[in-house]
Simulated scan of single mutants.
Amino acid sequence: MSGHHHTYGPSGMGTVVLDIGGNTGALVIVTGPEWHGHEIEISPKGQDPSVRQHVAVRDRHVADGVRYTAVFPALPAGAYVIWRNETEEAGTVVVAGATVTEIEWWPRP
């Protein structure tokens, strides 16, 4: 997780475009409202950990209420490290091609 914090308005249903298929999947990290606006960083497991992707957690208004999620819309299939901060790994997740991988992640920001 980087130290960046953003202020975004809510995201409605159908506003996120995923680019999945073949060897490309998407990752959705569901977390709590305390993460709203914070960035979550990931990097491919076993590769240079300084090469990371990051997205901000946004409040997403869905049919059953509000979910706080970070959406990585297109990732090559494989294992990824989720970073708690600049130097500490929080865990790993495996993204499969042509699918959406969804996990719940509840650490304190």
Rank of each mutant, 00 (worst) to 15 (best):
H5W: 08
G22L: 02
N85D: 13
P10Q: 11
P49N: 05
M13K: 14
T87Q: 14
G32Q: 08
H5Q: 11
G78W: 03
V28G: 00
E102Y: 03
V57W: 01
E86A: 14
L18C: 03
V93S: 07
Y80W: 00
P107W: 07
D59Y: 08
T69P: 03
R67W: 09
R52H: 03
P44L: 09
A79N: 08
A74D: 06
T31P: 02
G9V: 02
A98F: 08
G78K: 07
D64M: 07
V95L: 06
P73S: 08
Q53T: 12
F72I: 03
V57H: 01
S11I: 10
V16I: 14
L27E: 00
A96W: 07
T7Y: 12
V93E: 00
G22V: 06
E104Q: 13
Y68H: 06
V28D: 00
G46R: 05
M13P: 12
R108A: 15
T7Q: 13
G37I: 04
A74R: 01
G12R: 11
Q53C: 10
H61W: 13
W106E: 15
L75T: 01
V28M: 00
D48K: 07
V57N: 03
G14D: 01
V94F: 08
V17C: 13
P44V: 10
G65S: 10
A96I: 09
L18S: 01
E104S: 15
W105K: 04
P109S: 06
R52P: 06
V28F: 00
T15D: 07
W35E: 10
E34S: 12
H5L: 13
G25H: 03
P73Y: 00
A63M: 09
H61S: 12
V30D: 08
P33S: 15
R60K: 13
V55T: 11
Y8C: 10
S43D: 04
Y8I: 13
E88M: 05
V62L: 14
A56Y: 09
G14W: 05
A90L: 01
H6A: 04
W106S: 15
V51C: 10
T87Y: 09
G37M: 06
A96F: 09
N23G: 09
T15G: 06
P44I: 03
M1F: 12
S43F: 05
E88F: 04
S11N: 11
V17M: 13
S43N: 05
Q53V: 11
P10A: 15
A26G: 05
R60T: 13
P10L: 12
G65D: 08
E39M: 14
A77H: 05
T99C: 09
V66F: 05
S2K: 13
E88I: 02
V55G: 06
E88Y: 02
T99M: 09
V28E: 01
T31I: 04
E104A: 12
V93L: 00
V28Y: 00
Q53M: 11
T7F: 12
T69E: 15
R60C: 11
G46T: 03
R52T: 08
Y8W: 15
P33K: 11
A96K: 15
F72M: 03
G14Q: 05
I29N: 02
V62T: 09
R108E: 13
V93R: 03
A90M: 01
V51Q: 10
T7V: 11
P10V: 14
G32P: 04
G25E: 04
T101C: 09
T92Y: 03
G78C: 05
S11M: 14
V28P: 01
D59K: 12
V51S: 15
I103S: 04
